[in-house]
C-alpha cells in the first residue's frame, strides 16, 4: 500500500531509545555510591576516575541527556551567585528554578547540585 500521509509515520528511534535509557539508568543507579557523589563535589574528574574507574559512565550518561529539560548552572552574577536553570526550546525563555532549589556562591557547589538534580530527573534515589 502506498504512502500517502507523512503523519502516518513516526520515528521509531524513540522505541529503541526507551530500551537504551532503561538499560543505562539501571547501570548508573548501580554504579552510584555516596562516596562517588562526594568526590564529584570535591575533586577534579581525573582524580575521581582514578578512584572510580566507571565514574565516566555515570557522567557521560548525564551529560548526554536531551538538551531540552536539561539542567544547567545559571550564573546569575558570574563568580558570585549561581542558581539552577533548565534548558527550554529555542525561542523560549530558559526556566530558572526557584531559589529554594539552591543559591550558591561558587560554581563547584552549583555543579554538584545540578549533578544531583540530573540523577533525580532520571529516577535515581540520590543519597543525602
Amino acid at each position: 500500500m502506498p504512502l500517502s500521509d507523512p503523519l502516518d509515520y513516526r520515528d521509531k528511534t524513540a522505541d529503541a531509545l526507551e530500551v537504551f535509557h532503561a538499560r543505562r539508568r539501571e547501570v548508573v543507579g548501580r554504579l552510584l555510591t555516596p562516596e562517588m557523589l562526594e568526590l564529584q563535589r570535591t575533586m577534579r574528574e581525573p582524580e575521581t576516575i582514578e578512584k572510580y574507574p566507571h565514574y565516566h559512565l555515570v557522567m557521560n550518561y548525564l551529560r548526554l541527556a536531551p538538551a531540552v529539560g536539561k539542567s544547567f548552572v545559571y550564573a546569575e552574577e558570574p563568580y558570585r551567585r549561581y542558581r539552577i536553570g533548565l534548558i527550554t526550546q529555542r525561542g523560549t525563555p530558559a526556566e530558572i528554578l526557584d531559589e529554594s532549589r539552591g543559591v550558591f556562591d561558587n560554581e563547584r557547589d552549583a555543579r554538584h547540585a545540578v549533578f544531583r538534580l540530573r540523577l533525580e530527573h532520571i529516577g535515581i534515589d540520590v543519597p543525602a
Binding site: R63, V73, Y74, A75, G85
Partner: peptide
C-alpha cells in the same frame, strides 16, 4: 555538547 566539554555547563 556537555559530553564534548566534559563538564556541566554554566550559562549566563
Amino acid at each position: 555538547a556537555q559530553a564534548v566539554t566534559g563538564q556541566i555547563s554554566v550559562l549566563e
